[in-house]
Computed example of a mutant assay.
Amino acid sequence: MNAPLVVVAHGSRDPRSAATIRALPLGARVSFLDLSAPLLTDVLCSLAAQGHRDAVVVPLLLGSAYHARVDLPALVREVPRLRVSIADVLGQDPLLENIALDRLRAAGADPADPSLGVVVAAVGSSHAPANDAVIALARRWNTRYPMLVAPAFATAKPDVASAIAKLRARGARRFAVASWFLAPGLLPDRIAARARQAEPSVLLTDSLAPDPRVAELVLARYHATLARAA
């Protein structure tokens, strides 16, 4: 199946977000669910008008929350002239975990430091399994590394201040926030501001993208989807 690759991100009012997604070394058609252009439906309609019969959409989403489960399939159904296969979300892939660890080290945090408290900060969701995946990531890091780790969310509980307080009670003396966001934007900025209020010396990491390993993961999702559709 000769199907174009379309990546779709959430979209943001913050122009840094879309710019970061476009900087991924993919050579794919970039689209957004909302707030940024071009919208996914516009890209899919353009492909159909060009004579394409198939397409593969890879969601640049880190969890299977409402956007992945409901919004995305509904938008795809709006373009019936095109057979669209939707890949799995990027999720809690080891490649992304490695990027997050590298971001920590680049910010000056050492995962081998038992006095280091790390908050894994994500967007949060009303869909509990999406939050559970981030909680599971924090547990894995607690098991694998001497550092102390706790999850936090921008739009759910616990928030970053509560997570820092919990880590301090567990014995942490230095603190870092590991961004579990693909791109910068308003919610990561909110987390950063609240983290600094709770601990002025906190170390803050960059978002996961752009990074060549994110592009590798996207292409792996694309080829796995093609194989399933064949």
Results as ranks from 00 to 15, higher is better:
188 P>D: 02
222 Y>I: 07
50 Q>Y: 07
8 V>D: 01
56 V>H: 13
172 A>M: 10
23 A>H: 14
91 G>M: 01
27 G>A: 14
79 V>W: 12
15 P>G: 09
118 V>W: 13
11 G>Q: 09
205 T>F: 03
14 D>V: 11
71 D>M: 01
121 A>K: 05
54 D>F: 11
185 G>I: 02
122 A>H: 05
141 W>D: 11
188 P>S: 04
154 A>S: 14
73 P>V: 12
195 A>M: 06
14 D>E: 08
79 V>H: 07
145 Y>E: 10
105 R>K: 07
183 A>W: 07
226 L>N: 06
103 R>N: 06
161 A>M: 10
184 P>S: 15
162 S>V: 14
226 L>M: 11
162 S>H: 12
190 R>F: 12
180 W>Y: 11
26 L>K: 07
229 A>I: 05
168 R>W: 00
38 P>K: 03
16 R>D: 13
123 V>A: 15
35 L>C: 12
218 V>R: 02
126 S>E: 04
101 L>K: 06
130 A>S: 12
222 Y>K: 00
200 P>G: 03
149 V>W: 00
107 A>T: 02
11 G>R: 08
179 S>E: 10
229 A>F: 09
144 R>I: 14
197 Q>E: 15
197 Q>L: 12
148 L>G: 05
15 P>Q: 02
160 V>C: 01
55 A>D: 13
89 V>R: 01
66 Y>V: 06
148 L>M: 13
12 S>I: 03
5 L>S: 06
53 R>A: 15
210 P>M: 01
15 P>I: 06
8 V>H: 08
197 Q>S: 10
173 R>D: 10
160 V>L: 01
